[in-house]
Amino acid sequence: MDRTDVLDRVKALSLLPDGMHVTTAMVATYFKVTVKTLESVVEDHREELRASGYHVLTGTQLALFKRASGIQSRSRSLALYPRRAVLNVAMLLRDSEVARQVRVYLLDMEYLARTQPVENTVPTDTATLNARIDQRITHILGKTVVPMFNALIETSSDHRRELIALRTGVQHIERRLRQHHSRLQRLEGPREDRPRAGIMAAMDAMNGREFEEHVASLLRRDGCTNVLVRGGGRDRGIDITALTSDGRALVVQCKRFAPHLNITSPEIQKFLGAKVLHTSDIALFVATCPFTRDARNIAAESGITVVHRGLLEEWSAGAPLTVLH
């Protein structure tokens, strides 16, 4: 229930100006159901949703909330859902494809947490370290700082305006950090038009040898012949050799890293050295994670084709790899 970030990975969730809540109509729009359907779910599971933060504002509380958030409404009551309650709704809705996708993504994440091998590599890439810091800061801002400001605003009269202004600034920072983190993690998230979390979940659960065999099977599917998985400690930096359908020599390096890591320039340079020792027309570097900008630049200059996490997902789902044809 704490993995509310899943909501935005499946579909963008618009929030009220307070940056914390959504209304019944907004939740219904997100899940593509009618307001009546959502109200029926609330009626059947009201206590459970209340435990997740669902509440209804009336009277003075409603007036204060409208004033603070700038909402224009003549209604005498307003039902509010924090992100946790929206995630709770996703577990209760039966006839919503969006809710089903949220549940599937949660199951995939749980599967990964239980089966993914522990990586011993300590990330040194600056972007990776910054992403982790961004996540921690965003979590603290959303879970601690903003609620603290909300409580102060409710009880303070002398400094109410200043507190609201400060809260707005904190929420702006929180949104910017979320946007920054989303850009860094875009490759590992499912797309709304074609969510494939299951494909990558299965691949992330493989060991190194299984991943090499998976890449070899993709090469055979795309018409390659003489596909040989070399692997092991004597592979001299080349995991797979093959011939394309038109006879060109192919060498492949495979790296099964955790999604939050990156392939850095030293990895590409090492592969480049191995490529020099093997006469080849095409060199592929296939990885279950993104590549840093420096790594991509060196690869492009050296004639190495990088197959990053997003491209690997498409290739595994059936799309042909252009360089092989």
Rank of each mutant, 00 (worst) to 15 (best):
T168S: 14
R194I: 00
Q179S: 12
A201S: 15
E212Q: 13
G189M: 12
H214W: 14
I199G: 01
R196Y: 03
A202T: 08
L184W: 13
S182D: 12
Q179M: 11
T168G: 10
P195H: 04
A201F: 00
V215N: 08
H181N: 13
I164K: 06
R191K: 04
E174Q: 15
G169I: 03
R183N: 13
E188M: 07
E192Y: 03
L187S: 13
R194N: 10
E213V: 08
I164G: 00
R194F: 03
R186L: 02
A205Q: 04
S182T: 09
H180E: 07
R167P: 01
I199C: 02
R178P: 00
A197C: 03
R209F: 06
S182K: 08
L166K: 08
E210A: 13
Q185N: 11
M206T: 03
I173N: 05
R183I: 06
V170Q: 03
I199D: 11
Q185C: 10
I164V: 15
R194V: 02
E188N: 04
A201E: 11
I173E: 07
E192C: 01
Q171R: 14
Q185R: 11
Q171T: 14
E212I: 00
R191G: 07
D204C: 10
G169H: 08
R167Y: 06
H181K: 10
N207C: 08
S182Y: 06
I164W: 03
H214N: 08
Q179I: 08
G189F: 09
G208V: 04
A197Y: 01
R167A: 00
H172K: 10
G208R: 09
M200L: 15
E213R: 11
R196V: 05
R178S: 07
P195F: 01
N207F: 05
E188A: 08
G169Q: 11
R183H: 11
A197F: 03
V170K: 04
G189K: 12
R186G: 00
L177F: 13
D193Y: 04
M206N: 01
R176I: 04
S182F: 08
R176C: 09
M203E: 13
L177V: 04
S182W: 06
L187M: 13
E213D: 10
I199N: 05
L184P: 00
R194W: 01
I199V: 15
A197N: 06
M200Q: 12
H172A: 12
P195R: 01
V170C: 03
G189S: 09
D193W: 04
I164R: 09
R209L: 07
E213K: 09
A201V: 04
A202K: 13
H181E: 10
A202F: 02
R176E: 15
G198A: 11
I164D: 00
L187R: 14
I164C: 01
G198D: 12
P195K: 01
E188T: 05
E212R: 06
R176N: 13
R196Q: 12
A165E: 15
N207Y: 02
D193C: 00
L184D: 06
E213P: 00
T168K: 13
G198K: 10
N207T: 05
A197Q: 10
G198R: 11
R209V: 06
Q179D: 15
I199E: 09
I164E: 14
E213C: 06
G189I: 02
R196T: 08
F211G: 07
E174M: 14
